[in-house]
């Protein structure tokens, strides 16, 4: 394979692997579908313009998240008039999202009570499955600060989650074994 071919194949794998996580991530920041799509597109365009083979072709994920995050924050800074009403319909038009909104759980409610800083690292950790180090890369925090925030965030929601879990029928003590 020529370098060009290799780049194309690498690029396209990267797109397929990351596009929808990035879109979901960006949407969480912007709550606007069209703008989020633009941001994701832009981030991939930036990726494409990078030199290849470069130092991050094996691991572009954190890089992409960071670019999306920065772009999204830029947009938020420029436009403070983003209204939720505009997006509500959009959000509700996606059946599954509406489904989950309608039955928003205790746990989610608790997460929403956390500080923005804690919420962000928890989302990156548990929603986007980034490692501490990757989160550090994305947010510009130090790895140890990421660790502290995740720890604190977890401490705060732990009780409510465990209460929920105790109600579970999947709880081994309650579980029937019909065999």
């Amino acid at each position: 394979m020529s370098d060009q071919m290799e780049k194309q194949s690498w690029f396209h794998t990267t797109v397929v692997d990351n596009e929808s996580s990035l879109l979901n991530y960006t949407f969480k920041i912007l709550s606007q579908m069209a703008t989020s799509e633009e941001v994701v597109q832009e981030s991939f365009l930036k990726l494409w313009k990078q030199e290849f083979p470069g130092h991050f072709e094996h691991y572009p994920k954190a890089w992409l998240y960071r670019v999306c995050r920065n772009l999204a924050i830029d947009i938020l800074r420029k436009d403070k008039r983003i209204r939720f009403e505009d997006n509500l319909e959009e959000v509700l038009s996606c059946p599954c999202v509406s489904e989950s909104l309608l039955q928003a759980s205790q746990i989610m409610a608790e997460i929403n009570k956390l500080s923005k800083a804690e919420k962000e690292v928890l989302v990156l950790k548990f929603n986007d499955d980034l490692s501490y180090k990757e989160i550090a890369e994305v947010t510009g925090l130090s790895v140890s600060l990421v660790g502290v925030r995740i720890h604190k965030g977890l401490e705060k929601i732990r009780k409510i989650v465990e209460d929920e879990l105790n109600n579970l029928e999947l709880n081994p003590k309650k579980k029937e074994t019909n065999v």
Partner: peptide, 12 residues
């Protein structure tokens, strides 16, 4: 649990 919770609106 958190992952499952988050995965619910990972739908775009």
């Amino acid at each position: 649990t958190l992952q499952a919770e988050f995965s619910k609106d990972h739908l775009l």
